[in-house]
């Protein structure tokens, strides 16, 4: 039996331990905010946090989260940084089609947790693995800077 928490609540799973975490989140836990993109960890759409670290859930076996804490886009607003990022996303009207955005936000939150006032280079380094087919990159960059400013102001 694999036991772990998702967004703070306890979960247990005793199916195929090699099933991707993304399958569990979407099909078993009904948390469909996390999206399937490429299936080979090359696009970033399925990014979630495991113990606070951004991870591509499409290639992460569910067994590897045994005893760990998983956080998805559904709980982003419950954290101060996540809340600021989502506000900045709304204010900047970042998404176009929106499909990649939950992954973008999860990566942006991880970046700001690691470095509260990132440079453009930092944003490139941390966010380049998240692809946006609508090319909303300039708005993503602006929103991250805007969230960082608010974060500095609140601190």
């Amino acid at each position: 039996m694999i036991t772990f928490t998702v967004n703070g609540s306890s979960h247990a799973f005793d199916g195929d331990p090699n099933m991707p975490l993304l399958w569990y989140l979407r099909d078993e836990a009904d948390l469909t905010g996390t999206k399937f993109g490429c299936g080979i960890a090359m696009c970033g759409a399925c990014t979630v946090h495991i113990d606070g670290r951004p991870v591509r859930s499409c290639l992460t076996p569910v067994a590897s989260v045994d005893g760990r804490s998983v956080e998805t886009i559904e709980t982003a607003e419950n954290h101060p940084i996540g809340k600021l990022v989502q506000q900045a996303w709304v204010e900047g009207q970042v998404p176009q089609c929106g499909y990649c955005q939950s992954g973008q936000i999860m990566s942006a939150v991880a970046l700001l947790k690691t470095k509260p006032s990132p440079t453009d280079d930092d944003i490139d380094a941390a966010m380049s693995g998240n692809i946006c087919r609508c090319a909303t990159y300039p708005r993503i960059r602006a929103a991250i800077h805007s969230a960082a400013e608010k974060l500095a102001y609140e601190a």
Binding site: A41, M42, P54, V55, R56, S64, D124, A125, S128
Partner: peptide, 18 residues
């Protein structure tokens, strides 16, 4: 590297998903 490799290998090279 930052676009295509860091997603799995990470900057500190410890391997993300595996």
């Amino acid at each position: 590297f930052e676009g295509d490799c860091a997603g799995c290998h990470q900057w500190n090279g410890i391997g993300r998903q595996t």
